[in-house]
Design a protein around this nucleic acid. Structure first.
Lengths: 196, 196
DNA sequence: GTCTATATACCGATAGAC
DNA sequence: GTCTATCGGTATATAGAC
């Protein structure tokens, strides 16, 4: 027998995995209940509806993401700035290669967001935070003289888009030299010299 | 009254729109039939099953995509190479801003592909073609002296990833200076000079 | 808390008349 | 070609016993 917290946690964990694997619509509460080892109505003791369960997981995932991109700007100098950019990119790539579930379910939520305003608002907040984190990092790079200050915002956005999209292609199993791409993106930005 | 071709075309067109708007699972054949102005069984005269209809639309979309990135390499010189890169990027951005349906349904198919091998194979073929098109273009840029030949492949992949991901962010309604980002990406790649 | 049993609704798909 | 009627299956959700 399990206690309340254990069952609750197991439902959440199992729902997360199964939603990621099969999608929301193709995962019924009966399937989740069977996997957890309880009956379908037992889920309703913990969650008012399937939608509420999906909502809850969305909020959990959002929190997790926002915790993730808290870059440390201190201790960065012109000497270690490039290496730091490379390292955080490599870390993101490795995490995405390890945890396929995360990317899959997050893409499900992106599509859901296009049809549900509450999700879209939250998603946009995350996206803005993501771009702003990169922006802060790059502006710090300007301050310490690691990057040319011209079009910092666009450079920053470009880097953010590259690393974000690597996750999408990993999802489709396409095997590219992602670390090489990231390396090139970082170097292109750091060393770019404008002549116009 | 409509003839066979007209009804067929209307089913395809309506299914495309409704699948993009609501997703495959949340769009029933009854909904499509009602929108077209026929009964549900009438759809079965044209398509054996809902799955076959979804399959058909996937193939149509794949064809459309593959037609799209047939870059013309001829007539490119060191003087107009950068402008050409900018132009094709701007065109892609404008198309994605115009046709939201396309991006939405394509993302649905990407998720479907992670669960259906036939889709994934086709998707990977498209992705490879996409990256190869960029690669051809960039290698031509090297030949005419518009780009440094170092890490051309990674530079090419980077550009492809930037322009591809712009579509994803447009889908979420996030308003960024996408053309500025693309401009910066192109210039970074063209003017990058390595010092190691 | 968890169960069995069930209400209600909708789905994809088919039969068969016209 | 298109219809009405319907089948079989499954979904979410609830009632009520333990």
């Amino acid at each position: 027998m399990r206690n309340r917290e254990e069952t609750y946690g197991l439902i959440v964990e199992t729902a997360y995995k199964m939603f990621a694997e099969n999608g929301f619509d193709k995962t019924s509460l009966a399937m989740i209940a069977k996997e957890v080892g309880i009956s379908k109505p037992a889920i309703y003791y913990y969650f008012d509806s399937k939608e509420k369960l999906i909502d809850f997981l969305f909020d959990e995932i959002c929190k997790e993401i926002m915790d993730q991109y808290a870059f440390t700007v201190e201790d960065l100098t012109v000497n270690n700035f490039e290496q730091y950019l490379l390292t955080i990119g490599f870390q993101m790539i490795e995490e995405q290669e390890k945890d396929v579930h995360f990317n899959k379910i997050f893409n499900e939520y992106i599509l859901l967001a296009t049809r549900k305003e509450r999700y879209m608002k939250q998603l946009n907040k995350i996206q803005k935070g993501y771009f702003e984190s990169f922006s802060m990092l790059m502006n710090h790079g300007v301050t310490i003289g690691a990057i040319n200050q011209e079009n910092v915002e666009s450079k920053s956005n470009m880097l953010a888009m590259v690393i974000d999209n690597i996750g999408n292609f990993i999802l489709t199993g396409l095997e590219l030299d992602y670390k090489g791409i990231w390396k090139e993106a970082v170097k292109s930005v750091l060393l770019s010299v404008r002549n116009d």
